[in-house]
Each structure stands twice: as C-alpha cells, then as structure tokens.
Write a protein that binds this DNA or RNA. Structure first.
Length: 118
DNA sequence: TGGTTGACGACAT
DNA sequence: CATGTCGCCAACC
C-alpha cells in the first residue's frame, strides 16, 4: 500500500537528515507521486514527518496550521542547517532507503570526492 | 464511476 | 531569482 510504504520509509530517515517529497516517491517506487507523498504526510503521525521537505529544501505550506516554524525548529534542533530559508540539501539530504543504484542523488556531498571539478 | 483536491516538481516567463 | 503553468497521482467525495 502506498501510504504504508511511505510511512515506513519516512520512519527510516535518520535524525539530522532530510528527504524530499520527490525522493520519497522514488524510493517507494512511485517516481511521479511526490504530491501524493505530501498527502500522506498531512496526517502522518508517529513518524519524523518534519524530515521531509520540498525539492528546494524549503518547508511547504500546510492547509490549516502554520507548522512551518515548528518543522524548521525541529530540524535545526537536530543539527540541520538552513540557508536563506532553505535546508542545505547538499549536506543534509538523506541517501539511503535501499539500493544505491538510484541515480540523481549521487554526488552532492561536499565532503566526499565530489569536489574535483570545481 | 467520474470529478476535485492538493505538505509536489519540472519548465517556461 | 520570483511567479505562473502544466503534468502527475493517491485520496476523497
């Protein structure tokens, strides 16, 4: 089940790391369901929902409450750094969730050997 | 069964 | 870089 898969995956996001809606969608095998992931997060309970942000590293607006603040606070308390209102994805994006054959999230970790080009 | 609704995302302006 | 459009898709009605 989609919802269950999403919740199970989000539950695995380590403290101090974040994932994007699109990333979660890909990891559960539904690459085009990023939006639906948000729907699941809306009522998510008992999972680190605050570790899921949009593709820009920003905190997406919720329908009712203004939990944007709460989410950011929580992330910062875990050590996640923000830059101009956005999570510094290159450094805090979670890479995991299964087979690392996942292209696209490969080389954005500065501390690795990715800094050869520039 | 069929139409509407978004915690999204890639692109075009 | 900041909006606006359009495509997507699971959940809801």
């Amino acid at each position: 089940m989609f919802k269950t898969s999403v919740l199970r995956l989000v539950a695995r996001i380590p403290r101090g790391r974040v994932a994007t809606y699109g990333q979660v969608a890909v990891l559960v095998g539904r690459p085009r369901s990023a939006r639906a992931v948000g729907q699941v997060m809306r009522d998510a309970d008992g999972v680190p929902w605050h570790r899921v942000v949009n593709s820009l590293g920003g905190i997406s607006r919720r329908p009712r409450v203004s939990g944007m603040v709460t989410q950011r606070i929580r992330l910062e308390q875990e050590g996640v750094q923000f830059r101009r209102g956005r999570v510094v994805l290159p450094r805090f994006r979670w890479r995991g969730g299964g087979p690392r054959r996942l292209v696209g999230f490969a080389c954005d970790e500065p501390s690795l050997s990715c800094r050869n080009s520039t």
